[in-house]
Design a protein around this nucleic acid. Structure first.
Length: 881
DNA sequence: GCAAGGTC
């Protein structure tokens, strides 16, 4: 029997489609990776009985990156990223082993049906799957073996229709995505690397480790700054309004609005007041009553959910999506990433509603709605991806958790609202004549709440009823006043407004909008204020103003849509991939050079390149215009930042320690910046010097319960030996004789990780410890000893260096009041009770180990001394190869 | 260390 392999874009879809095509009779098994399942069933395919295998990928299989040597920020000129730097496709998530999994499943299959999402990205993934799978499939000479299923919703009719009208994957659409990936990568990385290096080398208090640029994130930031500028440049204006109060009989006075609304000239206002004041009576000119409706909402899609979650629930988009994902995988809501606002024809609206009849919150109203008959939902847009977001089963607050419940509650309320009647109300307007001027007042009274029963925040607020009157009635004027008012500035952009702007300008997609917003926050360009308002930081403002000054297109949203337009030409087969790509790259390369030239002022970029290798030229940039003028207002030059710390090995002057992220050392005399390990504190290390370069050592420490090690600021960035890695401290340095090196202080192989060595922390006394130079393992030993040293000799049993310990006479734990002992930490019986294993407490909660595993329960020595290493010297020796 | 786009 022949086999048909079918691949969907995500596991949940593979399952749904298999269920439909097998009429519920498929058997399922886990695939090679934990994420993907394979659903198998027998059926017919082109008139023959076949075995079907339905599975999925998890989004993209491959992603684009530069080949490794172009990922060195110090050696590669960002300008090379526009053309010279070759790219390669790598597996997105090597842990998932997706290619291997697909190949395993494809081995010996006869046909392939691609069920990827029906958009350009899906088309691109088709070819990623195809590339992986085709070599493993049986080859047929005169027969089509690869098919594309095109479906517009996940319903029986649609899936069967797709199956019966299979086509072929569209290479052009896939290529347009390839082009987008390459453009985004080359442009984004080139600008990001240049900006980061340039500004970091120049300013000491930037407070950002990365100054990123991207075709989506930069316009996103641009929107926030645009509003900021409007606020800043706002000039309040005085205006005047006439307020009239009238009454009839014993009724409360009625405040009327002036039909001219306002005037911007006080004298003109006063003139009107005088005209009005000639009359003591207000004559009712007309009374109109209009029945109006507030329309029930469209079915819910992702972007609307994100907007409401932000504005009404105070939940950020990233967080909202995480919660929604969870609700989806737990079966409470339907798939949360969709652009569609129209329910499929056969959607079971009543069934979905019936699930809610026992709810203690809205059960009664739902019952009423069902018995009165539900309303046909409004016609929305069917984007052909997934049905709108709806609840899938009843739930309670306890099982969902606070935010989970709030989001579920909203999704459910929104769903019920879409099948409820519109809200109906009566709008009454009374128009008055006082003297020559017209005034009016209006009010709303509820006729039937309709959907606002379920979305009470949209309800018609209760108002005081207007007096009953008809045209010709006369009211008495109680008061006429000229009020002076002032126009106010707009407020900062709310997250919900930003989402709307991004959607409108095509910046990002439903899935990526939250990521871009998160990016501009994490990069310190924007902060989220009360009410989820987005306020740009100094850095964000300066960057955007800089782009405006140099090349506004870099920040305008139109840049994205222009590129998208070109890409569509590829998708339509009207332009060639290479043509469009090269053309766009050419334009952006010019923009890049112009940007660099503008920032660097007099010295042109190409000139600088000719005369200096890349690593040298950045410092040559001087005589700035544009961006730097702006930067200097908000940020201080690196030479003026920080406090003196340790001496430079080249000029012997003090270097300054800059605390702002990324913390670093800067020698203003040599104009050099040296990077340091992050997430810890830096101190001077006893004015000791590195024997190789004469730089004063500094001590990095992650806190009292964590690790610490000395490092040489120069060696840290410029590894001294061929076998030393970049960005390591003295505890990984292989210097043969320096007293701070791994060679002098290493004691034995790490008890947990494979590659680390336990190194004595010479600063840790009196709570002595040795810590692994690779992982978080810390071994506490010889508490209260007043000296711990690594001896010259090695253990006869295991060859580990011996350790000499000195205790005070009064506190010595050694037998017979002995104060000194030399022995092996791993083998010596006297030492056995004096050694204890722990994990370093890390400052950063993201690091593994550390905190969570630090139990009080483990008494000293409970786990015994560290395991006896098999061959410690072999491990140690590995370091010196 | 970088982009944006999928998805878990």
């Amino acid at each position: 029997m022949r086999t048909v392999l079918m691949v969907a874009e995500k596991p949940s879809l593979a399952q749904s489609i298999a269920k439909i095509l097998s009429k519920g009779s498929c058997t399922s098994r886990k695939g090679l990776n934990a994420s993907c399942s394979v659903h198998e069933f027998t059926g017919s395919f082109q008139g023959q009985t076949v075995q079907y295998k339905m599975t999925s990928v998890c989004g993209h299989v491959m992603s684009l990156d530069f080949i490794a040597k172009y990922n060195n920020w110090d050696k590669v000129d960002p300008a090379e990223l526009f053309s010279q730097a070759p790219t390669e496709k790598k597996e997105v998530n090597p842990k998932l082993n997706m290619v291997k999994f697909l190949q395993m499943e494809a081995r010996g299959c006869d046909y392939l049906v691609l069920w990827l999402d029906c958009d350009k990205e899906g088309e691109n993934i088709c070819f990623e799957v195809l590339d992986a799978v085709q070599p493993m499939m049986k080859s047929a000479l005169h027969e089509q073996t690869v098919y594309r299923a095109k479906f517009s919703s996940i319903t029986d009719t649609d899936i069967w229709k797709a199956m019966n009208t299979l086509g072929t994957p569209n290479r052009n659409e896939a290529l347009s995505v390839d082009a987008r990936q390459e453009l985004d990568l080359r442009i984004g990385c080139a600008f990001t690397r240049f900006q980061t290096k340039y500004f970091q080398g120049k300013y000491g208090n930037l407070d950002s480790t990365l100054i990123s640029f991207g075709p989506c994130q930069t316009p996103t930031l641009g929107f926030c700054v645009e509003r900021h500028d409007k606020i800043q440049s706002f000039k309040p204006e005085n205006y005047w309004v006439i307020q009239a109060k009238v009454f009839k009989g014993k009724d409360n006075p009625l405040t009327l609005d002036w039909n001219r609304v306002k005037v911007f000239d006080k004298e003109v206002g006063q003139m009107f007041v005088n005209l009005v004041k000639t009359s003591k009576e207000a004559l009712v000119e007309s009374v109109t009553k209009k029945e109006k409706a507030k329309q029930r909402p469209l079915a819910l899609n992702t972007v609307e959910m994100l907007r409401v979650a932000s504005s009404s629930l105070g939940m950020g988009p990233q967080h909202t999506m995480q919660i929604a994902e969870r609700l989806y995988t737990q079966g409470y809501i339907s798939y949360p990433r969709t652009e569609t606002t129209h329910y499929p024809e056969n959607f079971d609206l009543k069934g979905t509603l019936k699930q809610q009849i026992n709810s203690r919150w809205w059960g009664e109203e739902v019952k009423n709605l069902l018995s009165a008959g539900i309303n046909q939902p409004k016609k929305g847009v069917d984007a052909g991806d997934h049905p709108p977001i709806t609840p899938m089963r009843a739930a309670s607050e306890i099982e969902l958790g606070s935010d989970g419940w709030r989001l579920y509650e909203y999704i459910t309320q929104h769903f019920i609202a879409t099948v409820s009647p519109d809200c109906k109300y009566l709008q009454t307007t009374i128009v008055f004549n006082i003297g020559t001027e017209e005034f009016s007042c209006s009010g709303k009274t509820l006729i039937s709440p309709g959907y606002t029963t379920f979305m009470p925040w949209q309800g018609i607020p209760l108002e005081e009823a207007l007096p009953v009157c008809e045209s010709g009635d006369v009211f008495t004027v109680e008061e006429i006043k000229l009020l002076e008012k002032q126009t106010g500035p707009p407020d900062y952009l709310t997250e919900a407004e930003l989402i709307t702007l991004m959607e409108k300008h095509g910046i990002g997609t439903d899935a990526s909008i939250p990521v871009h917003i998160n990016n501009v926050c994490q990069r310190n360009y924007v902060t989220v204020e009360n009410g989820r308002k987005l306020k740009p930081t100094n850095l964000g403002i300066v960057l955007v103003h800089g782009y405006y000054k140099i090349d506004a297109e870099l920040v305008l949203p139109s840049i994205r849509s222009a590129v998208e337009k070109q890409l569509t030409l590829i998708a339509l087969g009207k332009a060639h991939f290479q043509e469009v790509l090269q053309h766009a790259l050419e334009i952006f390369k010019k923009k890049f050079h112009y940007f660099v030239d503008s920032i660097c002022g007099e010295l042109t970029y190409s000139h600088a390149l000719q005369t200096n290798p890349f690593s040298e030229w950045i410092r040559w940039c001087s005589g700035f215009t544009g961006m730097d003028d702006l930067m200097e207002v908000s940020f201080s030059p690196i030479a003026d930042s920080g406090k003196p710390m340790s001496r430079c090995g080249k000029c012997r002057r003090f270097m300054k320690f800059i605390l702002a992220k990324p913390s670093r050392l800067h020698c203003s005399h040599c104009d050099e910046t040296y990077s340091l390990p992050q997430n810890g504190a830096i101190k001077l290390y006893k004015e000791l010097r590195c024997p190789l370069d004469d730089f004063e050592l500094v001590l990095w420490t992650s806190g009292t319960r964590g690790k610490s090690y000395p490092l040489c600021p120069y060696c840290y960035s410029n590894p001294p030996f061929r076998d030393t890695k970049k960005n390591v401290g003295c505890n990984e340095c292989t210097h043969p004789s320096c007293q701070h090196s791994l060679n002098s202080l290493g004691i034995g192989q790490c008890v947990e990780c494979d590659s680390g060595v336990l190194v004595l922390d010479p600063t840790s006394g009196p709570k002595w410890k040795m810590s692994c130079n690779r992982c978080n393992v810390v071994v506490h030993f010889f508490e209260h000893a007043h000296r711990v040293q690594v001896a010259q000799e090695n253990c006869e049993a295991c060859d580990a260096p011996l350790v000499t310990v000195d205790f005070n006479k009064a506190r010595t734990p050694l037998p017979d009041g002995e104060t000194q002992h030399t022995g092996c930490v791993f083998c010596d019986s006297l030492f056995q009770d004096l050694v204890e294993l722990k994990h370093a407490a890390m400052r950063h909660p993201m690091h593994r180990g550390g905190g969570a595993r630090r139990g009080r329960g483990r008494g000293r020595g409970r786990r015994g001394p560290p395991k006896r290493p098999k061959d410690k010297m072999a491990e140690l020796a590995a370091y010196f190869v």
